[in-house]
Design a binder for these strands. Structure first.
Lengths: 337, 337
DNA sequence: TGGTCAATTTACAGCGCTGTAATTGCATAG
DNA sequence: CTATGCAATTACAGCGCTGTAAATTGACCA
């Protein structure tokens, strides 16, 4: 059971280490006789290759790390699932890194203390602007998710947050809503994501000839259903009146739904609500959520494609890819007839 | 920028490799002068230790793998979050492995092809019985989550599913419910978890002098809100009548809530619902969910404690630890007055 | 019987770091 | 002024695998 080495297998089979190595790797030019002899020896000794040694010799780890604030946020969990699957299909294992949205952890992601830990990193920052990321960057291939355009020395994948926010807001306008609020962005220390969505919201109101009423822009102490619900409760208690709500994400929408219902307001009759992310739960809330659905499969694929190109040695400028999204209409803000 | 080695730093500082290594590791017996000289050289060259080489030399990887069916299930995502945090605090990084609940992937988890990939594995099986796990087991430290008691050569952490199911069911009985169903377990190929919960449900009904009506035991095609909702919809369309529902997990409960509401039934007035897991969403559904809340922090801590003992060389028999849970009463099955 | 060429197989030098054992330097005691 | 002991530092042999280049084998043909 103790550590069996390539050497041991080689001795038992009476061949060189390299031949055993070739058999293990299905190297084509190995004669059938040799192959079966070696395989027998491998089976007899219960040999298993040592990953660390292989990595040291080849310089590749076969691992990618995926970094974002918090896996327990459904959007990230669902994204992690997809990326993990695709990465596995490409022969990589996935390391999970949570930053909790603190800038220190984010810096730690970008400037790794150790070399040779992973072959590449997929990172969705929430605090660091890409300018700083570009500076801190070490020589590990890196692809950013969900960041805005910026001094690009690093690859990016994102959806057009602004356009999506415009679409969501315009949908509420088309439903005849006039007092449309925005819910769930950070109160201070705005993330780039929230900012882009807010911008789209404002642009759409503007285009519809509506003015933004700042009392209807309701920040939340954190990205969570709880904080969003609290924020909306306070706004309602405060006497704010709205007939439509664009939410920073589905969690905020779920919190808002809850607060509205507690307050005796009907969704969508009294207040129409649009969420963001299309987490799987969005189809099962009551009412179900109309929401922006980023094409996470495409996001994951684009990110992995670019990452593999970098790993393969590509050193061009940062690329900036826009992934698709769709607008999923459900009960909380039904289709316009 | 190219690879700087310990050797390079040593030459620049005019000392031996080992001294540099000692500085890097904060080895106590290094004179202050030497230390600062070496640190200057490290900074000048931008040296970063190579993880693979270190691992090969020490035999430790500093990585744990966490394996379960699917990170996008909220319970697992939330568990992963906690385990990742605690693991980080103990100096480990977490590798994510999803099995999709297939027995092949589960076998792959237990009988790793490569040695030296991770120092230990935390694994929540959904298909493999622990007897088979015990057989397939390679020599990587392993702790199982959520498995039932069984031929124990492997460590386990679980909550008392049966007792919790009894408590949940008894709560509905105490609310005066007499036609209590069970929702959301697998239709075929029952997971151990579902089985234990079903057993508790039956025992509690039995203890209350109620007979189990098999038409109220509603399996679901998969562990998801969607399938649970479909199953409940079919049951209702079928004319089945119930006034209480014990759900295999919160996802099933959320699906059930949705199907009941579509059918015009009020929760909890017409049907009281109890979920399981206390995922963070459980407090924000409408109505919020009464649910079994496993102490995931404790589960994670126990698992890591045992795993570290194994990594440290402990080779005793498998231990079987029972973690706490609490019963959280919310709107979907309110407190008995 | 060689000669030629391609298919197999091998020897060996690292990959970069750590553990062990040995060595050096230096202060204190005798 | 030497003996003693301890702290600081070093030399070096691996950890187990792979890539390279060279060696061997064998088939086939002249």
């Amino acid at each position: 059971m103790a550590n069996v080495r390539l050497q041991d297998v080689a001795e038992l089979a009476g061949v060189s280490m390299k031949t055993v190595s070739n058999v293990v790797h299905d190297y084509p030019h190995v004669s059938p006789g040799m192959r079966s002899r070696v395989e027998a020896a491998i089976a007899e000794l219960g040999y298993r290759p040592n990953a660390s040694a292989r990595r040291l010799a080849t310089g590749r780890t076969g691992m990618l790390s995926l970094a974002f604030s918090d896996v327990s946020l459904p959007y990230f969990a669902e994204l992690a699932r997809i990326i993990a699957h695709l990465a596995t299909a490409r022969g990589y294992r996935l390391l999970l890194e949570q930053t909790d949205g603190t800038i220190e952890s984010e810096r730690a992601i970008v400037s790794t203390r150790e070399a040779g830990l992973v072959d590449g990193v997929i990172f969705q920052p929430s605090r660091m602007p890409s300018l700083e990321i570009a500076k801190h960057r070490e020589d590990v291939p890196l692809v950013l998710l969900g960041e805005g355009p910026a001094p690009l020395s690093v690859d990016h994948v994102m959806i057009d947050n602004e356009a999506a926010a415009i679409e969501a807001t315009a949908h509420l306008v088309a439903l005849g809503r006039r007092r449309i609020g925005f819910v769930g962005h950070e109160e201070f220390d705005q993330s780039v994501t929230s900012l882009q969505r807010l911008t789209g919201y404002q642009l759409a109101l503007d285009a519809a000839g509506l003015t933004v009423d700042m009392s209807l822009v309701i920040p939340s102490a954190a990205i969570s259903a709880k904080e969003a619900a609290d924020a909306v409760r306070r706004a309602l208690a405060d006497g704010r009146v709205f007939d439509g709500l664009v939410c920073r994400d589905d969690l905020a929408a779920i919190g808002a739904l809850r607060a509205l219902q507690e307050h005796g307001l009907r969704v969508p009759e009294d207040v129409a609500v649009v969420g963001w992310d299309d987490i799987s739960m969005a189809a099962f809330t009551h009412p179900s959520l109309t929401t922006i659905a980023p094409d996470t499969g495409q996001i994951a694929t684009m990110a992995l494609d670019m990452l593999e190109e970098r790993i393969g040695g590509y050193t061009g400028l940062g690329r900036h890819r826009i992934a698709d999204y769709s607008f999923v209409v459900r009960e909380s803000a039904p289709r316009v007839d």
